[in-house]
Design a protein around this nucleic acid. Structure first.
Lengths: 208, 208
DNA sequence: CGCTAGTCTTAAACTTGTTTAAGGGTACTT
DNA sequence: AAGTACCCTTAAACAAGTTTAAGACTAGCG
């Protein structure tokens, strides 16, 4: 177990905590004691561009809340191609949920696309929260329910839409990201080659 | 609120209940009181082939456990094409989770592909279970976590694999269903036309 | 400064999957 | 026994997306 210098509790910046409290506050208001619990459990880390917080073969040990920056989660297929499964910009949670709960090695990578500031919580602490503050059960169920619905819509899109339709849907869903991310990353998310995405963009711009 | 004849509790068959108890028992053992609670909350229904248990525009009011038979869940796109999102054969839960929790109208249909026997639980009863028997919180979180992982793998496959690879993966995952279901349904699940699936099958069989 | 690595675009040849149309098979109706 | 509905396959023309290759345009780096 690694002992980074910012592991000891109490070192979490107020800015990061405020971001997290506001996130939860949008679901339901937090009591003072719940804020204190979160403060003592969350560990703050800065992550450099290109740095991994999860690599294939490792067990996903933490849920990560993104305060600023952006991550991508991807898998690598037989041919060695990277396929982006999701992006996690600021105010989002990211984890390989399967690996986290089963404690089996992950088949996925999570990499910072931009320099990032995050808050992490480990499994034992999350379970502690579940048990001692029943509300967090609901919080995290809501989080995963929302992520489930998002994924489901994506599957539906993948099997029913052309690359062009998927791209315009991506732009609508992440107006931020479409400017911020390199097109190679977006192409990998959409399941097309960067070359074809370039074609799609051109044909879209000429349509207006 | 509809009052079908089998709504009153106590009418649930032992065979169905045993199937449900066994399902939960695979996650963690059930206490007698928990069995009693389930017995009193689950409502048994027989569903005819082609019958819908959810239609677009309706709010998904119940979680459905499939005792026997098989359902499909699908969405209809702008062109009117049906796209199968998932199948639910015996010993599976099915619901539009997004609609169920948000109580907003669903964009999906759930239809019986075969004659089915199901047990259903309504939202208020599920919430009652959550509150009075904390264990069910965990049960249903595990159920949705597993479904999430399944979906995630599917997205990964959709963006990284050819139709042939997706078809062979489908056969591995549902060896039952590949014989049982009409190929039109499988094609709709894979996101290809029935004609192309026919080609794929032919090219696969000639490879051996 | 010049070098390298990453990013974006274009184009031509190719592969994967769709569309349209047709024909044959089975099974349930009448 | 014929009728209809559904299911599965084949084939040819077409559209969607990939591959390979090349050129231009950054941005970071020694």
């Amino acid at each position: 177990m690694d002992m980074s210098p910012d592991k000891n509790p109490g070192n979490v910046s107020n800015e990061s905590l405020e971001s997290l409290f506001q996130y939860f506050g949008n679901i339901m208001p937090l009591k003072e004691i719940e804020r204190d619990e979160l403060r003592s459990m969350m560990r703050e880390r800065t992550i450099r561009r290109r740095q991994y917080i999860l690599q294939e073969g490792d067990v996903c040990k933490a849920y990560t809340y993104v305060v600023s920056g952006c991550f991508r989660m991807f898998g690598v297929d037989q041919k060695g191609t990277e396929n982006n499964l999701q992006f996690a910009p600021e105010n989002n949670w990211i984890a390989d949920i399967g690996s986290f709960f089963s404690e089996k090695p992950s088949k996925l990578f999570i990499e910072a696309i931009e320099p990032c500031l995050v808050l992490q919580i480990e499994k034992k602490d999350l379970l502690h929260l579940y048990i001692n503050h029943h509300k967090f059960d609901r919080y995290f169920r809501v989080i995963i329910e929302n992520k489930y619905v998002e994924l489901q819509n994506r599957v539906l899109q993948n099997i029913s839409s052309t690359a062009e339709e998927r791209y315009t849907a991506f732009i609508e869903q992440y107006p931020n990201l479409s400017n911020r991310l390199p097109s190679t990353q977006i192409a990998s998310y959409l399941g097309v080659t960067p070359e074809f995405l370039s074609k799609v963009r051109k044909s879209l711009s000429s349509k207006r």
